[in-house]
């Protein structure tokens, strides 16, 4: 447990996923999606969850965000059980899911508004707009943005609240490959600058290796942890780095290659 104060004053938390199993009751049977998951994400760490599509990774993020409660086991932030959503833990969805009736600026302001701190912290909106390089689009409506811009707004909308934990559910999955590359770089930059704890769900092996300190491989549904792998490379990383290419091979094997990637 990270009890000591962080040297660089960054806001983050330790996420403990303690023997979590979860399932849904369907009409005729029970669908088990998570099976006995045990992960500790250290404060400030960037962990990637890698696994086939639809294996239950996204469910784990919803549990960590507090949108749902696990069937058994518990999720804890700095030792306290997560009961409900909290702006300290923000989930960025696969689709940007911006509110279409609000401008970019007001979308970003939504969290501050919801918590009633909009007046005191309005200056932060301009800061994050600059951070995601969208100052020029502050007054645009979501339908006027490209997919990459919208996803940047979604990330800005999370970051403006200064979250301790950022949960990312395949945030770049729907973007074209060029946009995805630059967004991955940007995310690394933001994470290193802000120091939050990050949990990224992806089915893109390269993305996991480029961004994360640690990659956890999930099995097909119900998801179990089948491998865990530290990526001990300084940022910025090159995707053609020999060690990463080697790790990529290992991971692909773990995933049963031909199946999904």
């Amino acid at each position: 447990m990270a009890l000591a104060f962080d040297q660089d004053f960054s806001r983050n938390l330790t996420l403990t996923i303690d023997n979590v199993s979860h399932g849904y009751d369907l009409a005729d049977r029970r669908l088990q999606v998570l099976d006995n998951i045990l992960i500790t994400v250290e404060a400030g760490e960037f962990v990637a969850l890698l696994g086939p599509s639809g294996c239950g990774k996204s469910t784990l993020l919803r549990l960590a965000a507090g949108l749902e409660k696990p069937s058994t086991g518990a999720l804890k932030e700095d030792g306290r059980t997560i009961e409900k959503p909290d702006p300290d833990r923000i989930l960025v969805f696969q689709e940007a899911s911006l509110f279409p009736w609000l401008t970019v600026r007001k979308n970003i302001a939504a969290g501050l508004d919801a918590r009633g701190v909009l007046k005191e912290q309005a200056h932060r909106i301009d800061e994050v707009l600059k951070l995601v390089k969208l100052e020029a689009f502050a007054d645009a409506y979501p339908h006027q943005l490209s997919g990459g811009m919208a996803q940047r707004v979604a990330i800005a909308r999370a970051l403006v609240n200064d979250p301790k934990l950022l949960l990312l559910d395949e945030p770049f999955g729907r973007l074209d490959s060029l946009t995805r590359l630059s967004m991955q770089q940007e995310l690394t930059r933001l994470w290193r600058a802000a120091g939050f704890t990050a949990l990224l769900v992806t089915h893109d092996v390269e993305e996991a290796l480029l961004l994360a300190d640690r990659v956890i491989v999930f099995s097909d549904r119900p998801a179990r942890i089948v491998a865990e792998l530290a990526v001990d490379k300084p940022h910025p990383r090159r995707r053609d780095d020999a060690d990463l290419v080697h790790l990529r091979q290992t991971l692909l094997q773990r995933l049963g290659v031909a199946d999904d990637v």
């Binding site: 949108l67 702006p87 989930l91 969805f93 969290g111 508004d113 919801a114 918590r115």
Partner: peptide, 16 residues
């Protein structure tokens, strides 16, 4: 539904 989920993770109450 995603709009509600987004708003809830951002700290929204029922009123919001």
């Amino acid at each position: 539904r995603t709009y509600y989920d987004v708003a809830r993770t951002l700290g929204a109450d029922n009123r919001y």
